[in-house]
Design a protein around this nucleic acid. Structure first.
Length: 576
RNA sequence: GCCAGCGUAGCUCAGUCGGUAGAGCAACUGAUUUGUAAUCAGUCGGUCGCCGGUUCAAGUCCGGCCGCUGGCUCCA
C-alpha cells in the first residue's frame, strides 16, 4: 500500500465523511472540509440537526464506502463547467468558494462515489485507504468564521494510517482528560468557580493559594534579581485615563461598564499599562534613569463572551505577570535580548524546555514611525537568533501599535500553550506624551515594551497543573511530607518529626486517621504528596524514618537530618 | 453571544413506561492499632440547576432562564 502524507489521508477522510453525510441526510449543502493539525473536519448546512448518535451512523456509512474502494477521480474543468455543476446541485457555498479561486488557476474537482467536491487535492487513490477513522465531535461554526454569517454544522474527526496509531491518539485524548486542570483542581481542592460568585471568576482554595504564593514569591525574587522594580496599582481608574490611553476607543468591547463615583465615571482595569505610565510621568525622567523595568502582578478584568470561558485557561478576572520596560533607542537591543533570556530561564525553572517563538511584524494599518518599527523588529529578531530559538514569522500579524514576540511552550503531553508576550508599544508613549531628557538636553520619546512572562497566573497555574498531572514538584507542593504513624502509639513520635521538619522549613503534616498504613499511603498517593514517612516501633528504636517517595516508592531508612538535607537540596534546586 | 449536548448527595454515577429518590467514595460516630496503594459496622447527607406549564401524579413530558462541556470568533 502506498504511503500518503497524513494530511492527504485526512483530507480524503473529510471527503469520505461528506459523501457519507450526503448519503444519509440527502439535501446537504457543503462548505469546506480541510485536514487540520489533529485530524479533519467538514462543514455542512442541512435541515437535519446532527446529534451525537449520528457520528456512529456516519462512521458506519464511511466504512461501507471505504470497503468499496471507490477511486478519487481528479478532473480539471473550466470555471463555467464547475459553476454549472454546483448551480445544478444548489451548492451555494461551493459557488462562493469557486469565486475565490484566483483567475487563471486551474479549477479541479475530485469525485469519490456520489460526492464531487471543488478541491485542489491531492487525495489517496481510493476510499479503501481511509481505514482508521474516528469522528470526534459536532460543533457549530460560522460560515467563513464570521458571526454575521449563517452557522453551519461541523463534524470533527481524525484519521491515521493504522488502527494502532488511531488507538494511541485516542489514548492521548484520554490522558489529556485525566490531566484536565478542572478535574485535578477539584480533586486536590486547589480552586473553584462558583456560579454565585460569577462565571470566569476564580476562588483560590488554601492549597491552590499556597502554590500560587510559592510561584509569586519565586517570581518576585527573580524580578528583583534581574533588575526590575515592583509596583502596585489600583484596580480602577477614571474614564479620563482610559480615554487618554485609547482603551475606550479600541478596547471598549472587552471592558466592563463604568461605575459612578461622585459623578465621575471609573472603569475596572483591563490592563495595567496606563497606571505604570502615570507613575512614569509623576516626575521628569532623564536618560540616566533609563532603562526602567517595572513589574506588577496586576489583576485585570476583561469581558469575555460566556461561550469562551474555560476553567483557569480563559477567565474574566486574572492576574498578569506584567512589566513595562521603558528605555532609550540605544538600549532597546540589549533590553529585548535580556527579557527574552529571562523569560526562557523562568520557563526552565518550571520544567518546560520546548519553546517556540512567533514573531509578528507590522500590519497595514499601524501607528508610529516606520523607522522605530524597523529598529524594534530588528531587536526582536536578533534576540531570537541569539537564543537560537525556533521561530515562525507572522508577516503583518503585529498589533497596530507595535511588533511582538509570542512564545509558545509545549507541555508534558505535547500540547502547545501561548504564554509569554513581548510587545512594543508606539501608541501609548505618544498618547501620554512620555518623554525623557537626553544628553543633548532635549526631550525625546522613549521606547516602551509590555511583557508578560507566565502570561496570567490563572492560565499558568492551569498549564502547570496539567503539565505535572497534579504531581507538583517538591518546591511547589503545598504539603511536602506526610508522616504516617503505624499506630496511634506512634502519633507523638510522628508529631515530633513533623515539628522537626517544620523547623527546617519543610511543610510536613501528620496523618492522624485510624486507618491501616496501606490506606494512609493510598490517600497520600492520591493527594500527590511528594514524600511519605512511615514511623512505628522500628523507627522509634532506631531514631530513623522510613522514606517513601510518591514517584520512586520505598527509599529505605533515613535519619531525619539526612532526609531533610535531601529535601532542602531538591527544593533549592527547584527540581521539576 | 451563536450551534449542539449536558445539569440527580461534597465527589463519581444509576434511576425502566410519568407512580414513595438510590449506590460507591467522602464526611460523622463507634470498634479496630494497623509496616508500604482501600479494616469493619453504623449514621448523616437531596428544593433532582432555577422558574413556570401539562397531569390525579413530574427527576422523568413541554417552555423560559442560569450554569457547564465541545466548537465558532477572540485571546493572558
Amino acid at each position: 500500500m502506498a504511503d500518503y502524507p497524513l494530511e492527504t489521508l485526512r483530507h480524503s477522510a473529510a471527503h469520505l465523511m461528506a459523501a457519507a453525510v450526503k448519503s444519509l441526510f440527502g439535501n446537504v449543502r457543503f462548505d469546506i472540509g480541510p485536514a487540520i493539525e489533529e485530524g479533519f473536519y467538514y462543514d455542512f448546512d442541512m435541515e437535519h440537526r446532527l446529534v451525537p448518535e449520528d457520528l456512529k451512523r456516519i462512521e458506519k456509512a464511511m466504512q461501507k464506502l471505504a470497503a468499496r474502494r471507490l477511486p478519487f477521480e481528479r478532473q480539471e474543468v473550466s470555471r463555467a463547467e464547475a459553476e454549472a455543476l454546483f448551480r445544478a446541485e444548489g451548492q451555494t457555498y461551493k459557488l462562493e468558494r469557486l469565486a475565490d479561486v484566483p483567475a487563471g488557476e486551474a479549477v479541479t474537482l475530485y469525485r469519490c462515489g456520489e460526492f464531487t467536491d471543488l478541491c485542489r487535492g491531492p487525495h489517496v487513490e481510493h476510499s479503501g485507504h481511509v481505514k482508521a477513522v474516528k469522528l470526534l465531535s459536532i460543533a457549530g461554526s460560522y460560515y467563513r468564521g464570521d458571526e454575521h454569517n449563517p452557522m453551519l454544522q461541523r463534524v470533527y474527526g481524525t484519521a491515521f494510517p493504522s488502527q494502532e496509531e488511531l488507538d494511541a491518539y485516542i489514548q492521548r485524548l484520554e490522558e489529556a482528560k485525566r490531566r484536565d486542570h478542572r478535574r485535578i483542581g477539584k480533586e486536590l481542592d486547589l480552586f473553584s468557580i462558583s456560579e454565585v460568585v460569577g462565571p470566569g471568576l476564580i476562588c483560590w482554595h488554601p492549597k491552590g493559594a499556597r502554590i500560587r504564593h510559592l510561584i509569586e514569591s519565586f517570581w518576585r525574587e527573580e524580578h528583583y534579581a534581574n533588575g526590575y522594580e515592583l509596583l502596585y496599582t489600583p484596580h480602577i481608574g477614571r474614564a479620563e485615563l482610559w480615554q487618554a490611553s485609547g482603551h475606550l476607543d479600541f478596547y471598549r468591547d472587552s471592558m466592563y461598564a463604568p461605575m459612578d463615583i461622585e459623578d465621575t465615571p471609573y472603569y475596572v482595569k483591563p490592563m495595567n499599562c496606563p497606571f505604570h505610565i502615570e507613575i512614569y510621568k509623576s516626575s521628569s525622567r532623564s536618560y540616566r534613569d533609563l532603562p526602567l523595568r517595572w513589574a506588577e502582578l496586576g489583576t485585570v478584568y476583561r469581558y469575555e463572551k460566556s461561550g469562551v470561558l474555560h476553567g483557569l485557561m480563559r477567565v474574566r478576572g486574572f492576574t498578569q505577570d506584567d512589566a513595562h520596560i521603558i528605555c532609550t533607542p540605544e538600549q532597546i537591543e540589549d533590553e529585548i535580548a535580556t527579557v527574552l533570556r529571562f523569560s526562557l530561564a523562568m520557563w526552565k525553572a518550571f520544567g518546560f524546555a520546548e519553546i517556540k517563538a512567533y514573531l509578528a511584524t507590522r500590519p497595514e494599518k499601524a501607528v508610529g514611525d516606520p523607522e522605530r518599527w524597523e529598529t524594534a523588529l530588528a531587536s526582536l529578531r536578533k534576540a531570537i537568533e541569539r537564543e537560537g530559538l525556533d521561530c515562525q514569522v507572522d508577516e503583518g500579524g503585529g498589533a497596530f501599535y507595535g511588533p511582538k514576540i509570542d512564545l509558545k511552550i509545549r507541555d508534558a503531553i505535547g500540547r502547545q500553550w501561548q504564554t509569554t508576550t513581548i510587545q512594543f508599544d508606539f501608541n501609548e508613549p505618544e498618547r501620554f506624551d512620555m518623554t525623557y531628557v537626553a544628553a543633548d538636553g532635549a526631550r525625546h520619546r522613549p521606547y516602551m515594551v509590555h511583557r508578560a512572562l507566565l502570561g496570567s497566573l490563572e492560565r499558568f497555574f492551569g498549564i502547570l497543573t496539567e503539565h505535572y498531572a497534579g504531581a507538583f514538584p517538591l518546591w511547589l507542593s503545598p504539603e511536602q511530607v506526610r508522616i504516617l504513624p503505624v499506630g496511634e502509639n506512634f502519633l507523638e513520635l510522628a508529631r515530633r518529626i513533623a515539628d522537626d521538619l517544620k523547623q527546617r522549613h519543610i511543610r510536613a503534616m501528620v496523618d492522624t486517621q485510624s486507618d491501616t498504613i496501606g490506606a494512609k499511603i493510598r490517600r497520600a498517593q492520591h493527594e500527590r504528596i511528594p514524600y511519605m514517612l512511615v514511623v512505628g516501633a522500628r523507627e522509634q528504636e532506631s531514631g530513623q524514618v522510613s522514606v517513601r517517595s510518591r514517584g520512586e516508592g520505598e527509599l529505605g531508612a533515613w535519619s531525619v537530618a539526612a532526609f531533610a538535607d535531601r529535601l532542602s537540596e531538591e527544593i533549592a534546586g527547584r527540581k521539576p
